[in-house]
Simulated assay, not measured.
Amino acid sequence: MSYLQPLTVFVLAGLCEIGGGYLLWQWLKADRPGWMGLLGALLLVAYGWVATWQPTSFGKTYAVYGGIFVVMSIAWAWYFDGFRPDRFDVLGGAITLLGIAITLFWPRS
């Protein structure tokens, strides 16, 4: 269970940041309504707050989150924008996940 809590918080933070950025992008670049921009801004603020729920230090939290962001961004683009990840996107995401696992969960002495 010790793995589930930090991963859940990272995914929630990712949804807030990527979702917020996506809504702002839609508002500014795709001429969507202003409420989308406002909701996007609120989600980005929520992302900053959610990230503080991690028990690790700021540096480690943001280093690991960077990897989570890479993988979730590929998945988001695939689901919402019709982006088709190729084998190199998948390989890069897998390597990123390995790095996250080492950084966050590898036993320390």
Rank of each mutant, 00 (worst) to 15 (best):
F69A: 08
G59M: 10
S73V: 03
Y65Q: 09
V45N: 06
G48H: 08
W53L: 15
R32K: 12
P55C: 09
W49I: 13
L42I: 09
L43M: 11
G66A: 05
V70P: 04
P33E: 03
Y65E: 12
M36Q: 03
G37Y: 03
W35N: 13
T61L: 08
L44M: 15
F58T: 13
V50Y: 02
Y65D: 11
K29V: 13
S73Q: 02
W35D: 12
G40S: 00
G59N: 05
V45H: 00
L42R: 07
G67Q: 07
F69W: 13
A46G: 07
W53F: 13
Q54M: 10
L42V: 15
A41M: 00
G66E: 05
D31C: 11
V64G: 03
L38K: 11
T61H: 12
K60R: 14
T56R: 12
L44S: 11
K29Q: 14
Q54W: 08
K60Y: 08
W53I: 09
L42P: 09
V64F: 07
L43F: 11
Y47C: 10
V71T: 00
W49D: 07
G34W: 13
F58K: 08
K29F: 15
L44F: 11
Y62W: 12
W35S: 14
P33D: 04
G59D: 04
Y62F: 15
